[in-house]
Design a protein around this nucleic acid. Structure first.
Lengths: 245, 245
DNA sequence: CGTAGACTTGAGAGTCATCAACGTAAGTGG
DNA sequence: CCACTTACGTTGATGACTCTCAAGTCTACG
């Protein structure tokens, strides 16, 4: 059973230290001074490990914390009034989840692990209190929200299926590179249907578009392993300015 | 010539008082205590008046301030690499503009007045400093960002032209009601082309969809005056849960 | 080996963009 | 007051893109 959030019975071994975490520069602590990081250390709690399909959050959960992906990956989604899944995003190491919950004070999304994954819980009241003392952290939270907003808006402008898929692959490639992985070898740990859902397309269209990219020599497709052969052409196909970082 | 932001030569008469502003409860100061509002009073500066077509911001402007619409309305847009306009939003009284600029520290959007309009400049460094002392303001800024993010994400899920247009009309109606205007009589102060652009459609499709809504008795169209006859049916056509407030 | 789910591929249909023509309203200058 | 212009809006015809439905293949796993 995962540790309860918001209780006092937090085992010390579950405490995670941002000050010693290799994801520092990708995550919320980005740009903070070492001594300031120690303030974060006092509030961060590890969640998980989760296995593929395990839930980190459910729609309607009271908002207490933001979550940072520590290892593995998660997807967030809602269920619309027709009972259909609506995927909001796929989240890699260092990325912040639960931003949507700040305003309504409850989580809009379900968040589920895509593979074996852990997350850091950042209790928001405490985070906000620390941020009141640390301009750098305050700025970082504001920037995280602002960046998500811009990215979401830009993403919504993509027109054709190929544009969307190309942008998805390039975006994934960029995020993997930032995390020290190969930018050319993508392992998709979600079915085509999920990619399609995320891009507001169908699995068939994803399949056909991947096939077309492959026939044009842009990528190599082997089930869920995608090798990007020509990143620059793929970026051109994406059309939308993925302002890196 | 509009007052320069960030200089010391700010005339006192340009100072706006949030503590005496009728938009308090719609705008960033929402929920703040009276004595706290006075801290905001010390940093807010009026911009404008702008006339239709006047610019408040240009893409690439250095980010110094957020802006709150004080009167009239604005639209924000970018120019994509093909030189085409991409409208990000229409902004009514009390709404915050420039959130996209926090992360890159420069404005992504041009912001232009749609009619005679004024805006309050909220110098961000000072705002952030005040927020460090006022949990209520801090929370309000976080919530504003979080809400924009969710709305943008939900908006991107709308599928058909009619869904998008219905959601647009309902959204506008809701925002006008919140501001004390009629929720049934909309005056669109932008051409069809701009609505189409915002909704990722064409002006022709807007025209046809409006005609269809009218023929079904949902609305009455008279040029840019739209009267909403059946808000509940229109909301159903919108499909997307516009979680009010 | 058999089943279930994921993936691919094909055929047909629907929605919306594009192109084009036309109508209308507002503003200008004669 | 009227021709003229310009921008906006509407309506129709056509075509492209992608969804839907269907069939078939492949993989994983019991």
């Amino acid at each position: 059973m995962p540790p309860q959030i918001g209780t006092d019975s937090i085992h010390l071994e579950l405490r995670q230290k941002c000050s010693q975490c290799s994801l520092q520069e990708l995550c919320l602590p980005r740009g903070l001074y070492a001594q300031d990081l120690e303030q974060l250390d006092t509030v961060v709690v590890c969640e998980g490990p989760h296995h593929a399909g395990d839930f980190l959050l459910h729609t309607g959960d009271r908002f207490r914390s933001l979550y940072a992906v520590r290892s593995g990956s998660y997807k967030s989604y809602t269920i619309d009034r027709d009972g259909r899944e609506q995927i909001w995003g796929f989240h890699l190491q260092g990325e912040i989840m639960g931003l949507d919950a700040i305003h309504p004070e409850q989580h809009l999304c379900n968040v589920v692990a895509l593979d074996t994954a852990t997350a850091c819980s950042l209790p928001f009241d405490q985070l906000s209190a620390i941020a009141s003392r640390l301009p750098g952290l305050r700025s970082q939270i504001f920037k995280t929200l602002s960046k998500s907003l811009s990215e979401q808006t830009i993403r919504s402008r993509e027109n054709t299926a190929e544009e969307r898929l190309a942008a998805f692959l390039v975006d994934l490639s960029t995020r993997l590179r930032e995390r020290g992985f190969s930018e050319r070898d993508l392992h998709l740990n979600m079915p085509r249907r999920d990619i399609a859902n995320y891009l507001h397309l169908t699995a068939e269209t994803i399949s056909r578009s991947l096939a077309r990219f492959q026939s044009e020599g842009l990528i190599l497709v082997d089930h869920r392993e995608i090798h990007l052969l020509d990143l620059s052409k793929l970026t051109k196909r994406a059309r939308c300015e993925n302002s890196a970082n």
